[in-house]
């Protein structure tokens, strides 16, 4: 059988092989709405970014004077080595005795 040489899927940009038939718009789906989930996370991130005041950072000459700006706060944190980030500890793997 002759095989047609095709470029790798990630290079071709040809997604015809993965095309799905158009679904009935009225048809319900029981699958998790992953894109909606990711979309909400992206939207939340956008709102958080806007609320942080980071967009105005270009006008901030002294980071310590702008605690409301997330970029300034990050710069102040990075320049203060005593400030330890509060993170959950990693798994503490234990030595095993085998009997």
């Amino acid at each position: 059988m002759d095989e047609v040489e095709r470029p790798p899927w990630w290079l071709s940009g040809d997604d015809s092989a993965n095309e799905k038939p158009a679904s009935d718009p009225g048809e319900g789906t029981s699958e998790p709405n992953w894109m909606s989930l990711l979309g909400s996370l992206g939207s939340l991130a956008g709102e958080w970014w806007a609320a942080s005041g980071a967009g105005d950072h270009g006008n901030h000459a002294a980071p310590a004077e702008h605690p409301e700006c997330i970029v300034c706060r990050a710069l102040v944190t990075v320049s203060a080595p005593d400030e330890q980030p509060k993170v959950l500890p990693a798994v503490r793997w234990l030595p095993i005795r085998r009997l």
Partner: peptide, 11 residues
């Protein structure tokens, strides 16, 4: 193979 550890989700 087995490894055993503990973890905390609450500081």
């Amino acid at each position: 193979d087995v490894a055993v550890g503990t973890w905390t989700a609450d500081p």
